[in-house]
Amino acid sequence: MRGETSGHAVLRGVTRVYPGANPVHALGPIDLDLATGEFFSVVGPSGCGKSTLLDVLAGLNPPSSGTITFEGNPVAGEVPDGVGVVFQEDASFPWLTVRDNVAFGLRRIGMDGAEIARRVDYAIGFMGLKDFASSYPAQLSGGMRQRVCIARTLVLQPRLILLDEPFGALDQQTRLLMGDELLRLWRETGATILLITHALDEAAMLSDRVGVMSSRPGRFIDLVDTGWTRDRDSRIVSEAAFGVITARLWSSLRTESMKAMGRT
């Protein structure tokens, strides 16, 4: 279920145009209200601006027009305090152990050593990495490395977590299990989550709401309320409602995907 307070993160008329000899209008205009504690997913055809949306919301890229606020404050120029981002690619630091990777952000802000150890232990345990705390990323599987990156974001206790296709490189079984881990994390932290994904089933299983984007320039063409309870897990994939939601997502997306492939 969605939280009581609305407008945790708000986008109004947000566009992004990449300048150049032939400017590329990648995104928008986008209007979006993310409620506190909501799990919102974004699906859309390849190249529709999903990752651009995440970048502008995170403050990693400025919007060309429009406004973005997080907890009432404008997002401009840098990632706001309280926002954590997990990227699609393996973003673990190969020269650091799992423990040092997870502690990276905390050490940068000069936190007390005991508090760092407490938070890191919790995050490592939570993500099931306890036996690998002293391992280096190269000694871990792709799924475990992604868990390291999630743990590194988790220790910062973000109130808004932005995930850019974090399970994109994983096999289907691992994705389902990682989805369960993500739902557990979401329930325990109470954070608002925005997940960018190209997998309709992943979006349908994990989200309270799913935004379907058009082909470029990406705009929301449908917002689907899933109606799942907060204690859901991957077993809902066998429910009839799951099929209905996935079918609706696909029916909204099919034409746009064909446009993106150059077939109208």
Partner: peptide, 11 residues
């Protein structure tokens, strides 16, 4: 992506 992580940590 590592540079983006650095930006995420506001380095």
């Amino acid at each position: 992506v590592l540079l983006r992580v650095a930006r995420m940590h506001r380095l």
